[in-house]
């Protein structure tokens, strides 16, 4: 069993509509019922981010995201799946439920 990160991509920080939220709930329940669920969450706007560099002496805090980009991650799922074909099917369903593009990326192997 492998773990995958499903990053929800968007170019606005608009919250999900009530309809989208309902579809996401259905999808989350499906993930849990079928044993794929690990974790999921929505993220606040990139402008709320702080970049922290604690590598050298006193930590340096920088207001804002580490990279300004047109598209950013507004939420994510972490799932378990036996292989990429299953992960792709689940990601397609997830993308449909939240009505946004989703990047599927594997975690490093066991």
């Amino acid at each position: 069993m492998a773990q995958y990160l499903l990053s929800v991509l968007a170019d606005t920080t608009d919250l999900a509509t009530a309809e989208e939220m309902a579809a996401i709930d259905v999808f989350n329940e499906q993930l849990q019922a079928e044993g794929h669920w690990v974790f999921a969450g929505g993220l606040a706007s990139p402008s709320t981010a702080t970049v922290v560099d604690g590598r050298d002496g006193e930590a340096v805090f920088t207001d804002g995201p580490y990279v300004e980009s047109k598209e950013f991650i507004i939420g994510f799922w972490i799932i378990n799946a036996p292989d990429l074909d299953v992960a792709l099917r689940l990601t397609a369903a997830g993308s449909k439920s939240c009505n946004r593009r989703v990047e599927l990326r594997p975690f490093l192997g066991e």
Binding site: A2, P82, D83, L84, D85, A87, R105, P106
Partner: peptide, 12 residues
């Protein structure tokens, strides 16, 4: 193929 676990098989 290895990292993302692309399956070695005929698809469904």
């Amino acid at each position: 193929i290895k990292a993302a676990k692309i399956p070695y098989g005929v698809p469904l």
